[in-house]
Simulated assay, not measured.
Amino acid sequence: MKPAFAALAGLFLLSACNAAPEAGSLVDRHIAALGGEAAIENVGSIRVQVEVTEPEFTVRGNYRADRNGHMRIDIFADDTRVFTEAMNGETGWQMFASGEVADLSPEGEAALRQGITGNLFGLHEYEGLGHQVSEGATVTIDGIDYRTIDIVLDNGHERRLYLDPQTFLVARERSEFALHPDLDPDEEIFETRYSDYREVGGVIRAFASERINLRTGEVAQTTRIESIQINPDLDPAQFERPASPQSEQ
């Protein structure tokens, strides 16, 4: 099993109950609905325990990340670690169940960086990170007129966020990408739908999501957050690339 979980790392900041202001740009209203700039920027590090289900398996993940570009996710089947992906602040690595360590592809590294951005930064900070954020068209889906925000990341990857017209919260997200880029590089168009919103550290986040392949209509992945810790102490050593067993002999 080699589930490259770069894509699941984009949990993205969401909110469900804070009142949005009646004036200001779409991004301003969205950020206010999340709880405001200060609450978002107060999140310096995060730890998430998550259950991930795909058609062929269900696994659990232990995800950690900080604003300095460090992240690691360990994947467990039952109580056995079967895979790890990480960024040490500059480059990424992956470790298999055997303990063998290898580089990530550029696409895999980009997906992990995207997850760090989505989990720890608000849209008001994106321009300073080199990304582009703009207001898109109003789009009607299932009878709901969604205001949209278009994002172009610094690597050219495009995302569209669909905001609820009443609350200015992200209800859906669409993007084209490879779900597991280091396993299968073929890209698909996915729609992610968020639900089960709960407040954690002043920001309300989605504790459940469903990712739909829009070409086939099939559910490609569902996630269920078991717990989120805000600003945990993270040992920097866990993000450093370990030696493969072969190199230790």
Rank of each mutant, 00 (worst) to 15 (best):
S175R: 11
E158A: 13
E107W: 07
G136P: 04
F121H: 10
R113E: 13
R174W: 01
I204R: 03
A178E: 02
Y126V: 05
A178P: 00
E218D: 13
F177C: 03
E210W: 01
A102W: 15
T140K: 14
R215S: 09
Y146S: 01
S134P: 02
L123N: 01
T148I: 06
L179F: 09
I204K: 04
F207W: 04
A137R: 14
T216G: 03
T167E: 06
R215D: 11
I149T: 04
E199N: 08
E127W: 03
G108N: 10
F121G: 03
L183G: 04
L163F: 03
E107N: 13
D196Q: 13
E125Q: 13
N213G: 01
Y146A: 01
G136F: 10
L129E: 09
Y194A: 01
Y146W: 06
A137E: 15
S98F: 10
A137L: 12
N155A: 07
E107M: 12
L214T: 15
S195K: 09
E210V: 11
E100D: 15
L123E: 03
G202R: 00
H124D: 04
E90I: 11
I141H: 11
V152K: 11
V133M: 07
G136E: 10
A178V: 02
G217I: 03
V203A: 00
P185M: 08
L214D: 05
G130D: 09
R113W: 15
E90V: 14
D142L: 06
V219L: 13
R172Q: 09
D154F: 14
Y162S: 00
Q114Y: 11
D186Q: 12
Q132G: 02
T167D: 05
T222L: 01
A171V: 03
G122C: 03
A102N: 13
E107G: 05
G130Q: 07
I141K: 14
M87S: 15
D186A: 12
R159F: 07
R193W: 00
A86S: 15
R198L: 11
A86N: 07
E191S: 07
G122K: 01
G201E: 00
R215H: 09
T148S: 05
D103V: 05
L120D: 06
E218C: 00
Q166W: 04
L214N: 06
R172V: 03
Y194N: 02
Y194C: 02
E199T: 10
E218N: 11
I144C: 02
